[in-house]
Amino acid sequence: MTNADRADEATGAAGAEAGAEVEVLVVGAGAAGLGGALTLARARRSVLVLDSGSPRNAPARHMHGYPGFDGANPAELLARARAEATAYGVRFAEAAAIAADRLPDGGFLVRCDDGSSVRAARLLVATGLVDVLPELPGLAGRWGRDVLHCPYCHGWEVRDRPLAVLATGPTAVHQAQLWRQWSDRITLLRNGRPLTPEQYGELAARGIAVADGAATGLRLTPDDRLAGVELADGTVVACEALVVAPGFAARAAVLTALGLPLTEVVREGQTVGTVVDADPNTGATALPGVWAAGNVTAPFEKVVGAAAQGVRAAAAINADLIAVEIRRATGAHRATPATP
C-alpha cells in the first residue's frame, strides 16, 4: 500500500469518520509541521496534517533570514510546502485538535473541533503559540506591520528610522540596546517600569533616549502609517515603528489533555510565557509516542529554525517506528518454525 493509499483511508477531520488511522498525525501546519510531514512522507509513512489556519506569523507580510525565501510572504512559503507534501501523499484536514486520549495499543485518538476524530500511532505537535500583546489602543491591528518584536526579522526594513521600544517586561533595556544596531534614533518608553542607574548610564552611552510616562495610544499619519506614541501627559514620542516584546502562550490543548504540563518561561522573576518541554535535538516529549517542534517548544525560534526542528523530529519519529517494526518482525521470525 502506498502513502497515498494509506492517507486516502484517513481523510482527517474534514469529514473523517471516527477511527480513521494514520501512522503519524501532525498537529499544526506551519513551517515545523510541514517540515515534519514532508520528511515523514518521504520516509514512506502515512501522514495526516491538521491545519487550524492560524499560523503565528499570519499578520506579517514578509519573512526574512530563510535562505532562498528572504522577503517572501509567509503564506507563499506555506502554500508551496503544502503542495510539496501533498505530492508525496500527505493529506490535510482543515480543523484544530482540541483533545486526545492514549489508546490501549499505545497509539492515540485525537478529537477535533468539527466533532471528528483521528487515530494515529505517533503524534508530532507543531501548534505554535499565541502572542499576548499589551493592551494599547490600536496596537494589535498593526502587529507585524509597524509594531514589531524581532530585529532579525524586521530590523533591516526600518533601519535608520526613529524607533520606540515599549517597556512591557524585564527585557526592555536589552531590546533597546539590541535595536540600536539598526538605528541610532531609539527611544525607550519606560511605561512605568523602573530602571537602575547602571541601565540609565548604558542607555545614555549609546545615545538611547528614555521617555517617562505610561503609553496611552498611537498617533498615525493621514495615510495610515505610524507617527508616534502618545503618553499619559499628552507628550508624543515620534517614531515610525514601535518595538514590543509580547508575552506568549503555547497552543497545547492536545498535550495537556494527555497529561503533559506546560512550563513557564521566567525572565528576571517575571513569567513571560508558556512552552512545552521537548528534547532540543529530537523533539521528544516526556510522553512516549509524542514529539513537539517549532514555537510550541521554542518560542524564540525563527521560521527556518522551526522547519529544521520539524525535520529532526520527523527523523526521530521514523526511527522510533522502525524500532517497533524490528521488534515485531523479530518476534514473528522467532515464532516461525524452522523448515527442515
Rank of each mutant, 00 (worst) to 15 (best):
V130F: 09
M63N: 05
D233C: 09
A58N: 10
T263M: 08
T282C: 12
W156K: 01
G331T: 14
W143P: 07
G247I: 07
L262H: 07
R219I: 11
R102W: 06
V236D: 07
L103I: 03
V265P: 01
V49L: 05
D5W: 13
G141S: 13
G53L: 08
D146K: 06
W156L: 06
S52W: 01
A41D: 05
G36P: 07
E157M: 04
A32G: 02
P67T: 10
E84P: 02
V22C: 15
A338R: 14
G228C: 01
A307D: 02
G217P: 05
E23I: 00
A205V: 05
A315L: 14
A18N: 10
I98V: 15
G331C: 06
E157H: 00
A96I: 01
V229M: 04
A79C: 03
V237C: 11
G15F: 07
C153V: 09
A96E: 14
Q181S: 08
A13I: 02
R328K: 14
A238S: 14
A329F: 03
C112N: 00
I98K: 14
G228T: 09
V324G: 13
N3Q: 10
A32W: 00
R225A: 13
G33P: 08
R190N: 03
A332N: 15
G289Q: 02
L139H: 13
D184H: 09
W143K: 11
G169K: 06
V24N: 03
I322L: 13
R82M: 04
A211K: 05
G331Y: 10
T187F: 10
V130C: 04
G217H: 11
T127E: 02
L178A: 15
A319L: 10
A215N: 04
L34A: 09
A176D: 06
A95T: 08
V254L: 04
Y152F: 15
A18I: 02
R102E: 05
V210L: 05
G207Q: 13
A31R: 09
V303I: 15
R80D: 15
A292Q: 05
L262D: 02
Q309H: 15
D131F: 03
V276M: 09
F69M: 15
F69C: 14
T285W: 06
A211L: 06
L203M: 11
A313D: 06
E268T: 13
L220G: 01
L129E: 04
L34C: 06
D184R: 12
P59A: 11
T274N: 04
G30Q: 09
R82P: 01
G19M: 05
G169W: 09
A85T: 03
V90P: 07
